Lab assay of single mutants.
Amino acid sequence: DRMTSQEAACFPDIISGPQQTQKVFLFIRNRTLQLWLDNPKIQLTFEATLQQLEAPYNSDTVLVHRVHSYLERHGLINF
């Protein structure tokens, strides 16, 4: 699994950072998509996403918020 070119453009700090940071991003992105796909008729809020993310992935709330906002803005969740 890899970041898309659009994700890389929107998250230059992640793509240029350590490999582990990219893996954390990918986990948060994929898990958020999975959470929404589990029940697409219900809006997936940032707060609900954060509550359902497993530790330690829920510890970087800023990154979780950025990923959630990106997915929502680009019509990948909550459409």
Rank of each mutant, 00 (worst) to 15 (best):
D1E: 08
R2N: 10
M3F: 13
T4D: 15
S5R: 14
Q6Y: 06
Q6F: 07
Q6P: 06
E7S: 02
E7F: 00
A8S: 13
A8K: 13
A9M: 13
A9V: 11
C10T: 12
C10R: 06
C10K: 07
C10G: 09
F11M: 03
F11K: 00
F11V: 02
P12T: 07
D13V: 03
D13L: 03
D13A: 03
I14K: 00
I14A: 01
I15C: 14
S16K: 06
S16C: 10
S16A: 13
S16Q: 09
S16N: 08
G17H: 05
G17K: 05
G17N: 04
G17L: 06
P18H: 10
Q19D: 11
Q19V: 13
Q19A: 14
Q19G: 12
Q20K: 14
T21D: 12
T21Q: 14
T21L: 13
T21C: 12
Q22N: 05
Q22M: 15
Q22Y: 10
K23H: 10
K23L: 11
V24E: 15
V24S: 14
V24W: 12
F27T: 12
F27D: 06
I28H: 02
I28Q: 00
R29C: 01
R29P: 00
N30G: 04
N30H: 07
N30F: 03
R31D: 01
T32N: 03
L33A: 04
Q34E: 08
L35D: 01
L35C: 07
W36Y: 15
W36S: 07
W36F: 07
W36A: 08
L37V: 10
L37G: 14
D38T: 11
D38W: 07
N39F: 05
N39M: 06
P40Q: 08
P40K: 08
P40I: 04
K41R: 15
K41P: 05
K41A: 14
K41Q: 12
I42G: 12
I42E: 11
I42D: 15
Q43D: 10
Q43K: 15
L44F: 02
L44S: 03
L44I: 07
T45V: 01
F46A: 13
F46S: 09
F46W: 14
F46V: 15
F46T: 10
E47I: 08
E47L: 09
E47H: 10
A48Y: 09
T49E: 01
T49S: 06
T49K: 01
L50F: 06
L50P: 02
Q51I: 07
Q51Y: 10
Q51L: 10
Q51R: 14
Q52E: 12
Q52A: 14
L53F: 07
L53V: 11
E54L: 05
A55V: 10
P56A: 04
Y57Q: 02
Y57D: 01
N58C: 06
S59V: 13
S59T: 12
S59W: 08
S59A: 14
S59P: 05
D60I: 03
D60R: 07
D60N: 10
D60Y: 14
T61L: 08
T61A: 09
T61V: 14
T61Q: 14
V62F: 06
V62I: 13
L63Q: 00
V64T: 05
V64D: 01
V64I: 11
V64C: 10
H65Y: 11
H65A: 11
H65E: 15
R66M: 05
R66E: 05
R66S: 05
R66A: 07
V67L: 05
V67S: 01
V67A: 03
H68F: 12
H68W: 13
H68M: 04
S69Q: 12
S69F: 07
S69N: 11
Y70M: 07
Y70H: 05
Y70N: 02
L71F: 02
L71R: 00
L71N: 00
E72D: 12
E72F: 04
R73F: 06
R73S: 15
R73T: 13
R73K: 15
G75K: 13
L76V: 11
L76R: 10
L76P: 00
I77Y: 04
I77V: 05
I77M: 02
N78S: 01
N78M: 01
F79M: 15
F79H: 13
F79D: 15
F79W: 07
F79G: 14
